[in-house]
């Protein structure tokens, strides 16, 4: 299937709320309206056999942006759903780990490295971050300087 065909299918379901899209040969990027995010993920994951490859987190100046990369292996398309997350004292979004077990470790990693809280996540404990780092040290944020680290 071509990314444009899949996009048309999604537009048929969600209309204008599908938001901005961008296509390449085998790639489709979608920035949906936040209210349809969970339904969109469900359509990609449940109905089209999308495999959650990973979630990339971008630290942009004003916001964090989460990129949910789904590989539709059978259709040979890589669909990326972009979701902005407000940069405030406690940046947070809903977890998808209860629906997609494969997302559990991915969300834990982002929570430790960027400090984004995934509400309703089944296991909010440390997985990766070095013991010498405090809970509120977020090493992958742009304002975190490696040079500031002391010792080991």
């Amino acid at each position: 299937m071509k990314p444009s065909t899949f996009k048309e299918e999604l537009t048929g379901r969600f209309g204008w709320k599908l938001g901005e899209t961008e296509e390449k040969e085998t790639r489709l990027y979608i920035t949906p309206k936040p209210e349809i995010f969970e339904d969109l993920v469900e359509v990609i994951y449940e109905e089209n056999g999308g495999r959650l490859a990973t979630i990339s987190c971008l630290d942009e100046e004003e916001i964090f942006r989460l990129l949910y990369h789904f590989a539709l292996d059978e259709h040979e398309i890589m669909v990326t759903v972009k979701l902005p997350v407000e940069k405030d004292d406690n940046p947070s979004t809903n977890s998808i780990a209860r629906k997609i077990p494969g997302a559990e470790w991915i969300e834990r990693e982002i929570r430790e490295m960027f400090g984004i809280d995934f509400e309703d996540h089944p296991a909010k404990k440390r997985l990766l971050k070095a013991e010498s780092l405090e809970d509120d040290d977020y090493p992958f944020r742009k304002d975190f300087e490696v040079e500031d680290l002391e010792g080991d």
Partner: peptide, 18 residues
């Protein structure tokens, strides 16, 4: 690159231990 995300295969395969 402004951001470079790396996901190794073991990161997805390992949680299957459950």
């Amino acid at each position: 690159p402004v951001r470079h995300k790396i996901r190794a295969p073991t990161f997805m395969n390992f949680p299957t231990y459950r």
